[in-house]
Amino acid sequence: MMEVREDAVAHTAPGASGGDASGGAAAPLLRVKDLHVHRGEAHILHGLDFEVAPNRVTALLGRNGVGKTTTLLALLGLLPSKGQIEFDGEDISPQPTHRRVQGGLAYVPEDREVFTQLTVEENLRLAMQWPESEGRLPMVHDLFPELKKRSAQKAGSLSGGQQQMLALGRALLHPAKLLLIDEPTKGLAPIIITEVVAALSQATADSTVLLVEQNLRVAEELATDAVVLDEGQVAWRGRMDAMLADADLKQSLLGVGRARPAGEDGRTRSAEGDGRARPDEGADGSEDTEGGA
């Protein structure tokens, strides 16, 4: 495991500074070290290490159930965790959730979690607690005109896509340093996905985002960097395009690209308990793309 991480870091850094001259100079905005999460008796995250570079979109990828949502919840303090979460130069792990958010995190949860009993306007008003929020409201309304039109409507009566826009708009009212977005396209019709992705790429230009996304195409469109989780650990880190170029990597870590269903693949692996084989694959994969790039 150590081996891979060093390797991945080694080639991320040149990639970041070389490929993107404008954004690569600064230190990472978020640095996670040895993050562990237990839920009941289940040990879900086994010591994650990763970083999120400023002004870039980092995709957090992996199969269903590897702990992506858990990672976001732990970063927010909504789940108890062990380990270090260094955000903007400060270890925020002892802070309660609301402090972390006040410190510059914003969150768009999986399944939207808008307040269904409140109106659209009230949902947004709840989020307007920062000095900058007033100035950001027109931007949110421009981005999602639907929200302005339906401001008196109960959020519970919105369609899935509209609720997603509300959840995004709510987060964008916060002048956050880091946006945590969990599966923004989950359960949406393809045509709505296009709309949401367009709005997302517009809204997240120049901001720092950690994005959980199952839909690889969406991740590809939005993200520049990728962190891939497997079995509660970081299996691969690097540039998004490098990962996408590697079919073996995609197949082994994300279960895409072959006919075999992901679930079956995953089960075989865990049954063998081959904790070492995958990191090696990951390392191989990254070396390959390094050569290619």
């Binding site: 927010l76 909504l78 309660p96 959730t97 609301h98 958010v101 006040q102 969150y107 949860p109 979690e113 307040f115 269904t116 009993q117 409140l118 009230e122 008003r125 709840l126 989020a127 607690q129 920062w130 709510r170 916060h174």
Partner: peptide, 24 residues
């Protein structure tokens, strides 16, 4: 009132209110 708004939101989803930076 804003306090009322926070309470109504909290009744529905306490954790999300915290995740918006509000001390519930």
């Amino acid at each position: 009132t804003r306090h009322g708004l926070i309470i109504r939101a909290g009744v529905e989803n306490r954790e999300m209110v915290q995740a918006m930076g509000i001390d519930v």
